[in-house]
């Protein structure tokens, strides 16, 4: 395996080997060992420092991811529940949103309550959770009454009466056709002669009852405005609104 090396060169290589493989001096060996231990100590401190600093970016990274995921999830829930219909799991988001809108400074509470009531009425017409929608509309209208202006001829009052009439109409359609069904108020005749339900099965006796035209569309009665709508005007037999003034 080894190539031939002439004796003269071999002797010089052997001298080189012997000269190089001398035993290291003791003090130099100890000095090197101590230097190595110092380097280990420094390296350990740096390792701890690096691990501390390395932990923070990892933590921050995870925190950033978690925060982003939370924001995205919250935005998704808010978007999905913005106009969630009653009965939906996200309806609470919509209720919270409406509550926030009412709490905002400068908000027109009467207007907002009426808008919320009209939205509920629209949902009731669309058939999404009819009873809950009507109940919501009733609550919003009851809240709107307390916020309406003192001037009963104001436009908001007209709007309120129209919404109230719509609500009653919807509630009447919700009642069962069975005449033996219990009723909390005397039946009122309608334009088709069938007994109608109570003026308000949801809102109680204090809510005004509208009169109806022959086509069945509700129309507000101007007589409610004088006493704040605490009367229950009797419906007109002919199906036309009864002018009180």
């Amino acid at each position: 395996m080894n190539e031939f090396i002439d004796p003269g060169l071999w002797a010089q290589l052997d001298a080189w080997r012997a000269n190089s493989r001398r035993e290291p001096r003791r003090h130099a060996r100890e000095r090197a060992y101590d230097a190595m231990l110092d380097a280990i100590a420094v390296s350990s401190r740096q390792r701890v420092r690096r691990s501390v600093f390395a932990f923070r970016p990892r933590f921050a990274h995870a925190g950033l991811l978690a925060a982003t995921a939370t924001v995205v999830a919250a935005a998704s829930v808010a978007a999905a529940g913005w106009n969630a219909p009653p009965g939906s799991p996200l309806y609470m988001v919509r209720a919270a949103r409406q509550g926030v809108m009412l709490k905002l400074p400068g908000a027109d509470d009467a207007m907002l309550h009426l808008e919320f009531a009209e939205l509920s009425l629209a949902e009731a017409r669309d058939g999404s959770n009819l009873a809950q929608s009507l109940a919501d509309a009733r609550i919003e209208l009851a809240a709107a009454v307390t916020e309406l202006p003192l001037d009963h001829h104001a436009a908001l009052w007209s709007r309120y009466r129209l919404d109230e009439a719509t609500l009653l109409s919807e509630e009447r359609g919700l009642e069962p056709d069975d005449p033996s069904a219990p009723s909390t108020a005397a039946p009122r005749p309608t334009d088709d002669g069938t007994p109608a339900g109570a003026g308000s099965s949801v809102g109680g006796d204090d809510t005004p009852s509208p009169t109806f035209s022959g086509s069945g569309s509700p129309s507000p009665s101007s007589s409610w405005g004088d006493d704040g709508g605490h009367h229950s005007p009797s419906p007109s037999p002919g199906g036309t609104p009864r002018p009180d003034e």
């Binding site: 290291p24 001096r25 090197a32 380097a39």
Partner: peptide, 13 residues
């Protein structure tokens, strides 16, 4: 000796 010492110090890192 110096180089040997430096070698082990560098090896640590």
């Amino acid at each position: 000796e110096d180089v040997s010492q430096d070698t082990f110090v560098a090896a640590v890192t």
